[in-house]
Simulated assay, not measured.
Amino acid sequence: MKKYVTDAPVLENAAISDGIYRMVLHAEKIALASQPGQFVMVMKPDDSGAFLRRPFGIADADAGAGTVTIIYRLVGKGTRAFAKMKQGELLSVEGPIGHGFTVGAGKTLLVGGGLGIAPLLFLAKSLPEKPVFLIGGRSEKEVFWKELLAPLAEKIYVTTDDGSFGTKGFTTTLLPDVLEKEQPARVVTCGPTVMMKGIAAIVRAAGLPCEVSLEKRMACGIGVCLGCTFLATSGTRKKVCVDGPVFDAKEVFA
Rank of each mutant, 00 (worst) to 15 (best):
K2I: 07
K3F: 15
D7C: 07
V10D: 04
N13S: 08
N13M: 09
A14V: 04
A14G: 01
A15N: 01
I16T: 06
I16E: 13
S17W: 02
D18R: 14
Y21G: 02
M23Q: 11
V24R: 14
H26M: 13
A27Q: 00
E28G: 06
Q35V: 08
P36E: 07
Q38M: 11
Q38F: 06
V42I: 15
P45W: 02
P45Y: 02
R53E: 06
R53G: 12
P55N: 08
P55R: 07
G66R: 01
I70K: 02
I70Q: 03
I70T: 01
I70M: 09
I70W: 01
I71M: 12
L74Y: 05
V75A: 15
K77L: 06
T79M: 12
K84L: 15
M85L: 15
K86F: 00
K86I: 00
L90Q: 11
L90S: 05
L91E: 04
S92G: 05
S92V: 00
V93H: 01
E94S: 12
P96G: 08
H99M: 06
G100E: 09
F101A: 08
G104N: 13
G106E: 08
L110K: 03
F122V: 04
A124R: 11
L127W: 10
K130S: 11
P131D: 04
P131M: 05
G137F: 08
S139G: 03
E140K: 15
V143W: 10
W145G: 00
K146D: 02
E147D: 15
L148K: 14
L149S: 02
A150P: 06
L152W: 12
L152N: 09
E154N: 07
K155W: 04
I156K: 09
Y157M: 00
V158K: 09
T159L: 04
T160S: 13
D162V: 07
G163Y: 09
G163P: 06
S164E: 11
T167G: 00
K168Q: 15
G169N: 07
T171P: 04
T171Y: 00
T172M: 02
T173A: 07
L174E: 08
L175Q: 06
D177E: 15
D177A: 14
K181Q: 14
E182A: 08
Q183P: 00
A185D: 13
V187Q: 09
V188M: 14
T189I: 03
V194S: 13
M196D: 12
M196W: 11
K197G: 05
G198A: 05
A201S: 14
A201N: 10
R204M: 00
R204A: 14
A205C: 00
A206S: 10
A206N: 03
G207Q: 05
L208R: 05
L214K: 10
K216Y: 08
A219K: 13
C220H: 08
C220A: 04
G223D: 01
V224N: 10
C225P: 02
L226G: 03
L226W: 03
T233F: 10
T233C: 11
K238L: 12
V240L: 09
D243N: 14
F247N: 09
D248H: 07
K250I: 04
A254Q: 11
